[in-house]
């Protein structure tokens, strides 16, 4: 038996609906026989009547409604059709859910699922990675699972967390990533994972870029160069300790993220490592992000816009030469 990243997300939601009466799913096209634009809720409306509800094209009101329901003790999961459209709901996520605990002492346990990241041909409004934007604001947990196992266990954890969680699931991984079985438990939330051990260079990454980075690490291993790859798993909280420990072993740091280059998760990692572990670095740290333009449609342009094994390898090679 094999299970995809997308099926893991569906299975996690089925388990949550089965085990916890407080859970319901709210989003565009999630209900009926349709099961969502990507089929992440396929069959769930039938299996759990009245708990998987189609919402109008009203991202702000979808999240507002979830916040209100959470105040009544529910554990809503909001599915954004694409991460890009969550910009309409920024106000509710950042200003309402993200401030509520601080202001009133009452947390808002909502999970907002964002089908994120690029697939070829999707263009500027169906390809965005928004984790850096959400991580910038206080009051939110931001998850970026990179494996089938994490997609499953982290979504279950997201719903269990009393605070608002932005769960960034990568659309490229939906079908490309498979596992033999679903795990019963994962690493604690907030803990990064050493995806591959190495001694010459640390690559810190998350989500789909983990797999591009692992490809580079395999390639370099053929030349006798061992790259350590750290999968952040959550960009907020950010596991600075695991990153610093890795840089202490390798002395070199490359950060890879798919979101836009101005600021963001990769810049945050570099800022922390240079501030806290400057003495550990044998070379200036580097990072690769997408380009600072909207995301192009054509595959020729798209594959050059985002980081890839090729550009990561080039950057890694330069770093190792220093």
């Amino acid at each position: 038996m094999s299970i995809t990243y997308l099926e893991a997300i569906r299975e996690a939601q089925a388990k949550l609906l089965r085990d916890d009466d407080r859970v319901f799913i709210y989003g565009q096209d999630v209900g009926g026989n349709f099961g969502g634009a990507f089929k992440a809720t396929k069959g769930l409306a039938k299996e759990f009547p009245g708990r998987v509800l189609n919402a109008p094209i009203s991202e702000d009101a979808m999240v507002g409604t979830a916040i209100g329901a959470a105040l009544q003790g529910m554990r809503p999961i909001v599915e954004m059709q694409f991460a890009d459209f969550s910009s309409i709901a920024l106000n509710q996520i950042l200003n309402n859910a993200g401030t509520h605990y601080w202001r009133t002492n009452i947390p808002i346990p909502i999970t907002v699922r964002l089908p994120s990241g690029g697939t070829k041909g999707s263009g500027p409004f169906h390809s965005q990675s928004m984790e850096s934007l959400y991580a910038h604001y206080p009051g939110l947990v931001v998850m970026t699972p990179a494996t089938v196992e994490d997609a499953y266990t982290m979504l279950i954890e997201a719903v269990a967390i009393d605070d608002p969680v932005v769960y960034c699931e990568h659309k490229y991984l939906y079908y490309h990533l498979k596992a033999d079985r679903l795990p019963t438990e994962g690493l604690p939330i907030g803990k990064a994972r050493i995806a591959r051990e190495g001694r010459d260079l640390t690559i810190v990454t998350y989500s789909a870029m983990l797999h591009e980075s692992l490809t580079v690490a395999e390639e370099f291993a053929n030349e006798g160069l061992e790259i350590e790859v750290v999968d952040l798993r959550t960009v907020k909280p950010l596991d600075t300790d695991t990153v610093l420990a890795s840089v202490a072993r390798t002395g070199r740091l490359l950060c890879v993220g798919e979101s836009f280059p101005w600021g963001g998760a990769t810049a945050e990692v570099i800022a922390r490592v240079t501030a806290e572990g400057f003495h550990l670095l044998d070379a200036a740290p580097a990072r690769i992000n997408a380009k600072d333009t909207p995301i192009p449609y054509h595959p020729n342009l798209w594959s050059a816009h985002r980081p890839s094994a090729k550009t990561i390898a080039e950057k890694a090679r330069n770093l190792l030469r220093e």
Binding site: S58, D60, A61, M62, V63, G64, T65, A66, I67, G68, A69, A70, L71, Q72, G73, M74, P76, N91, Q92, N95, N96
Partner: peptide
């Protein structure tokens, strides 16, 4: 306008 849908959510949960 933000509190309208929040109120809706409370009522929906009830």
């Amino acid at each position: 306008g933000a509190m309208i849908s929040v109120t809706v959510g409370v009522l929906l949960a009830k």
